[in-house]
């Protein structure tokens, strides 16, 4: 199966769903800053990989899959949970990329340009996550 993108899919997401994600993301970023300020960078750093957005996105994936089945007059409960399960499988592969991201920042940030390291670490995240996803599919 090839990877492709469909910008029209953004129309399925309602404005309040975008707002909800932004609210979760903003809140966890503030929370991480407060934790690091109160307990130091070692504890604060744990929360940089907190599953902040995943619960909201998996719930939306399940809801959208159920709605598609409901439009065809069918009960989409099982389809919704399958879709959420697939989303979680992808997220699990994404976490391998997160480990690579964190390692690159940890090792390279003190000696190199911050912008370059953050950009390189993001590329690393995507490369590792996409490779893990491809290997998982091939097995």
């Amino acid at each position: 199966m090839t990877i492709h993108f469909d910008l029209a899919a953004l129309r399925k997401t309602k404005w309040y769903e975008f707002a909800l994600r932004a609210l979760f993301g903003g809140s966890i970023t503030v929370f991480t800053g407060v934790i690091a300020h109160r307990y130091g960078p070692v504890v604060g750093g744990l929360f940089l990989a907190f599953p902040a957005i995943f619960p909201a996105s998996a719930t939306l994936v399940e809801k959208h899959a159920k709605q598609e089945m409901a439009r065809a007059g069918l009960d989409g409960t099982m389809r919704g949970r399958d879709a959420a399960s697939l989303d979680a499988r992808g997220a699990a592969m994404g976490t391998l990329g997160l480990m690579a991201f964190a390692t690159v920042v940890w090792k390279l940030l003190p000696q190199h340009s911050a912008w370059l390291v953050l950009a390189g670490a993001t590329v690393c995240w995507f490369a590792v996550a996409a490779t893990a996803w491809r290997i998982r599919r091939a097995i």
């Binding site: 993108f5 899919a9 953004l10 991480t32 940089l48 990989a49 957005i53 992808g90």
Partner: peptide, 18 residues
């Protein structure tokens, strides 16, 4: 916007907060 669903799931663990 990405398809298939499993690939799109990668973005559920994106380093956005980090």
């Amino acid at each position: 916007v990405f398809k298939p669903r499993g690939f799109a799931g990668l973005f559920g663990a994106a380093p956005s907060v980090a």
